[in-house]
Design a binder for these strands. Structure first.
Lengths: 194, 194
DNA sequence: TCATCTGTCTAGCGATGCTAGAATGTGGAA
DNA sequence: TTCCACATTCTAGCATCGCTAGACAGATGA
């Protein structure tokens, strides 16, 4: 009944608006916090009415999840870019710093990825590619210090420690002053092969 | 104008109701999650009307903070009780296990303490006693492995790692299967003096 | 017995996520 | 060009949230 070309244009426009919603939600969250990201406010920003959001996403949580997914892709890229150094200890440090820098530069995004959205499949078969890729990048930097131990487990512990530092620092649970000292100590711990 | 005894009775009753609110909020959060802890629901449970809550607390956040404070006290007691073993490595393990057990047995409480409530003073001079005490308990178990390093920093890193493991496991970010392996590896890392 | 004052409740405000049904506008057929 | 059909978008509203003003009730001391 409808021309094929018309249908394609519509799908293209829908995809663009889908992206616009995600980008706007992210920008808004980053500049004013996730509390400011209400469906009304978001609808205003994209210059459409509220129900339009629900023709793209099942609900607000799905929008947050979409933002988080975008974050995983960027984090993976960033970690990949930080795994090119030669010397092991320096490589590990660069990797850790890349992770922490990402979290600091995109606090709202990081929250969406690791504290808010719960409905993303993580350790399972249908885990999105970017998630898997980011973990692999971390693993590549940590693995050489595994010695006889399981590199996967070591990576999980390293990741947990980094995440813990980030999230406790952000909430004011850890003083901002000791930042560098803590990172240095963690890197020492991790890079001690045995 | 008012009898002293009357006034005392009233203050006693107020204190009891204050406790009732905190206990009820905690129980409700633990059994149905913090989303179920609405002011209306909470008022229903304590068999008073909503405004009564606001005569005790500035708002819902203050109630959560009160629950969190109770949690800090309990955690401190628990950690203190786990610092009595002789052999250092065993003492450290017992301490770590006590911390993780507390988080697992009281997930909602742990969330209130470390993820939700933001208005509790942490690393400052007016930090509540239980917070300081819990940190000291952790420190007492970790310090002997510090070697030449700053025991405070080491404790902060150890705490971060534990917290990271807990919070990532809970969100499904880490598979439940490797739990013991991750803890063992972390303890190895921490107990390696250098 | 009465007046007063404290404590409690009813009712309501603005804002939230979400949705049903009306209105709009676009595309193809006559 | 006119008209109909259908997809798309919007207006308006629901239930619920945290929070509060003002009415109501009950206890207290004179």
């Amino acid at each position: 009944m409808w021309k094929v070309s018309t249908q394609q244009r519509r799908e293209r426009e829908r995809a663009q608006r889908h992206d616009l919603i995600v980008k706007t939600a992210r920008k808004l969250a980053e500049s004013e916090g996730w509390d400011a990201v209400t469906t009304r406010r978001l609808a205003d920003e994209i210059e459409y009415s509220q129900p339009v959001l629900y023709s793209h996403f099942a609900g607000k949580d799905a929008i947050v999840a979409a933002v988080a997914l975008e974050g995983f892709t960027e984090l993976a890229v960033r970690l990949r870019a930080a795994t090119r150094t030669g010397e092991p200890r320096a490589a590990l440090e660069e990797l850790a710093r890349a992770y922490m820098a990402f979290a600091e530069e995109n606090p709202a995004l990081y929250d969406a990825m690791f504290t808010m959205a719960v409905d993303l499949p993580f350790g399972q078969d249908d885990t999105p590619e970017p998630l898997r890729d980011g973990f692999q990048a971390l693993l590549s930097g940590v693995a050489q210090f595994a010695g006889g131990r399981d590199p996967g487990i070591l990576t999980e512990v390293a990741w947990s420690a980094l995440h813990g530092l980030i999230v406790l620092s952000r909430g004011g649970r850890l003083p901002a002053s000791g930042r560098e000292a803590r990172l240095a100590l963690l890197l020492d711990q991790l890079s001690a092969t045995r």
